[in-house]
């Protein structure tokens, strides 16, 4: 196995707190929430596995073989599966769509959805998932919203929309709490001012 300290990007002389901090930051970075319905979820899962193993190994080395399992239970073991139970679907066609989504065959799922004549809440929901996997983020949101509007009490649809809208993605400390429309509104106002100032003065920071 590769050097666990290298995996966590720290020096072998790092203190226990530093190890923990590095581990937490990386676990936040590759957290399943950041890769929900993402075509790269499997790669993030691999990374997370590497990080978990490196952390355990360091714990083992430092604590002489104990503690690893107890630490692990507090670790991040979320699911990257993004699977959608096919038993919840009454319609056989939509069941097949769910199976296709779970197996990662998005093209097939989309083809089946386009064949469907009955386009109810579940159809919209599944279309939203397909769009999301494709990277069609605006369409995905509209389909998920439609599904929730048609069946406001459906927990599965509500959760999917919630997941879609609330996930902020990973950003390191100092880069958090703003989006395109809120950029420069509060804490980072100063930076924004400096930034636009720099642009107006002719980008001199790069080419002085």
């Amino acid at each position: 196995m590769s050097d666990p300290y290298k995996v966590l990007n720290i020096s072998p002389t790092a203190s226990d707190d530093e190890v923990k901090h590095a581990y937490r930051e990386l676990a936040r970075k590759y957290h399943p929430d950041n890769y929900h319905d993402n075509p790269l979820a499997d790669l993030a899962q691999e990374k997370m596995k590497e990080i978990n193993e490196a952390y355990e190994q360091i714990q083992r080395q430092r604590k002489g073989g104990y503690a690893a399992s107890s630490q692990r239970s507090g670790g991040y073991n979320g699911s990257y599966g993004n699977s959608y139970s096919s038993s919840t679907s009454g319609d056989p066609l939509l069941q097949r769509v769910r199976l296709a989504i779970n197996s990662g065959d998005i093209t097939q799922a989309e083809r089946l959805l386009n064949e469907a004549s009955d386009r109810g809440a579940e159809w919209s929901f599944l279309m939203g998932i397909v769009c999301s996997r494709r990277g069609w983020m605006d369409d995905a949101r509209q389909y998920l919203e439609t599904a929730c509007r048609m069946e406001p009490n459906n927990e599965e649809y509500r959760q999917a929309l919630q997941m879609f809208t609330s996930s902020g993605g990973y950003r390191p400390a100092g880069f958090r709490g703003f989006g395109t429309m809120t950029y420069g509104n509060d804490a980072c106002m100063r930076l924004c001012a400096a930034w636009s100032c720099c642009m107006l003065s002719g980008g001199r920071c790069f080419f002085c």
Binding site: Y30, L40, L43, D138, R141, T165, G168, G169, Y170
Partner: peptide
Amino acid sequence: LGETLDASIRQMAGAYAL
């Protein structure tokens, strides 16, 4: 529009992290 731009930036950042 800002929200859907954010979604793409998050997708880019997710890929970049890998």
